[in-house]
Simulated assay, not measured.
Amino acid sequence: MKRFLASLALGVGLSSFLMVTGASAQAPTPPEIAARNFVLLDLTTNQTLAERDADTPQDPASLTKLMTAYIVFDALKAKRLTLEQTLTVSKRAWDERKGDPSLMFIDTTMTPKVDELIRGMIIQSGNDASVALAEGVGGTVEQFVAMMNKQAQAWGLKNTSFKNVTGITEPGHKTSARDIAVIFSHVIQDFPQYYAEYYSKREYTFNKIKQSNRNMLLGRDPSVDGGKTGYTDAAGYCLAASAQRDVPNGKRRLLSVVMGTASKEARATESQKLLNWGYAAFDAVRLFEKNQPITTVKVWKGAVPEAKLGAADAVFVAVPRGEGGKLKTDIQRTDPLVAPLGLNQRVGTLKVTTSGGAPVAEVPLVVQHEVPLAGIFGRAWDAIRLWIK
């Protein structure tokens, strides 16, 4: 079957949603970041704005707890657990006190609620809380770690292998900056209620012990609404952070991950530098609204003669500041389109490029309404016409 290609020149003010092919060849140069590995994602457009060695496996330290939290949130969603449910504290959880790690300070005489343990794990970065939750969800820590790795595989995280739920240094316990960004983005997008409830809190008191969130950006930048820190000797100082700011097209969310910085201050400063640069150097351009038809095409053997094609959601794209009015799009689809066609069935791709032809993003093109088969005579007539065509 041949491919059909249509080109549309887009001016300023057209409206958008996307999947990304990669950064434009004309993308702005990011600032110098004092981190071993980093990545900056635009979650509004699903684009990578900057990166360095983002796929190199590293010790993640307590960034590991982003996946630990995700598995717990998933158990809550599946009703295998409730926030008010109490859990026992095992000797294994108590033994996390060895080696001077981050702790919530629970002991074997306590039966904390799941909600309390989540706060202890996220806000206080408690290793003991992480183990207690892992045992509550998975039965054993080993079973829970298997669940973490299964989820990583489901997302295609090829540079990730978990050996524990806390992030302590252990042979084979590795992930990458990009994989951490994927995990964190799933926490934000799949469980927005838990992200808003837990990751923005600056302190938490349990058993009369008050501890501050180590994410220093929560006190510096009001647009930063969550993140997770990590530190071990092997990992250095790490931070995954996310910010949401108001822009002319609505709200725009960026996510940064820095790994292997030199200090608590450095991980905050370098993350802030990345986020500020991402907002300043790129515009988020709305190309198409949700449910807005991008094109209307002929359908063969259908009960209706045409189908409206569009994106499954609004289409945004991040482009270097000032370049939004120069974008071009190409629609690539299979031709002819033959009924039946289902709602949201993918039939092509919308490719977005700069005026110079550099790729910006690719968006799946889907059918916006069902197209059932025509009657027997309609199908026969179109079959003859297609044969002649």
Rank of each mutant, 00 (worst) to 15 (best):
P30Y: 09
V141S: 03
L157G: 12
D128C: 10
A78H: 14
L327T: 08
K208D: 11
G375F: 05
A61K: 07
T88M: 10
L40E: 06
A311Q: 01
G325I: 00
I183R: 01
V297H: 14
T45D: 03
A268K: 01
G230L: 01
I33K: 07
P112A: 09
D190Y: 07
N215V: 06
G325A: 08
A54V: 10
F377K: 11
F377L: 13
Q143V: 05
N127C: 14
L5Q: 14
T296R: 13
D128R: 11
S62C: 02
E270G: 03
Q143C: 08
L63A: 07
A23I: 11
S223V: 00
F288K: 05
Y231R: 15
Y194D: 01
G378N: 13
E270T: 06
R214V: 07
I294Q: 05
A25R: 13
A132K: 09
P60G: 07
G139N: 06
E170L: 13
G227E: 09
D330A: 12
S176D: 09
G126W: 14
V72R: 06
T109D: 13
V257F: 05
A146Q: 15
N215G: 06
Y231M: 11
T82I: 05
F17C: 06
V114H: 11
S24A: 15
V165A: 10
P171W: 07
R80F: 03
L40Q: 05
F191V: 02
N46D: 10
A129Y: 04
L87I: 09
G357K: 08
G11Q: 14
V317E: 03
R52F: 04
R253F: 05
A318V: 02
G138E: 02
S200P: 00
D42I: 02
K163T: 09
L8D: 12
S102N: 10
S102T: 15
K264G: 13
M216C: 02
F144L: 07
L373G: 12
P372H: 11
G172E: 02
E51I: 04
Q85D: 02
N37Y: 10
S130R: 05
T349S: 12
G236D: 08
A196L: 09
W387R: 13
L49G: 03
F288H: 08
R3F: 10
L14E: 10
T295D: 10
L309A: 04
L343E: 08
N159S: 12
A27T: 12
V352D: 00
L239D: 08
L10W: 13
P305F: 00
L81N: 03
A6S: 15
P372F: 06
Q26K: 12
V145Q: 09
K389V: 01
F316Q: 00
R119A: 08
F4N: 15
E270Q: 15
I71F: 01
G230Y: 00
F4Q: 14
S263H: 03
P248E: 06
A374T: 01
F288W: 13
E84S: 14
V347M: 14
V352R: 01
D335M: 06
L40A: 03
T232H: 06
A380G: 09
D53R: 14
K273W: 04
D283C: 04
K2V: 11
I331F: 15
S15Y: 04
S223Q: 05
K2G: 11
D283P: 05
V363M: 08
W387P: 01
A35P: 12
A75F: 12
N207W: 10
E142L: 05
H173W: 14
G230N: 03
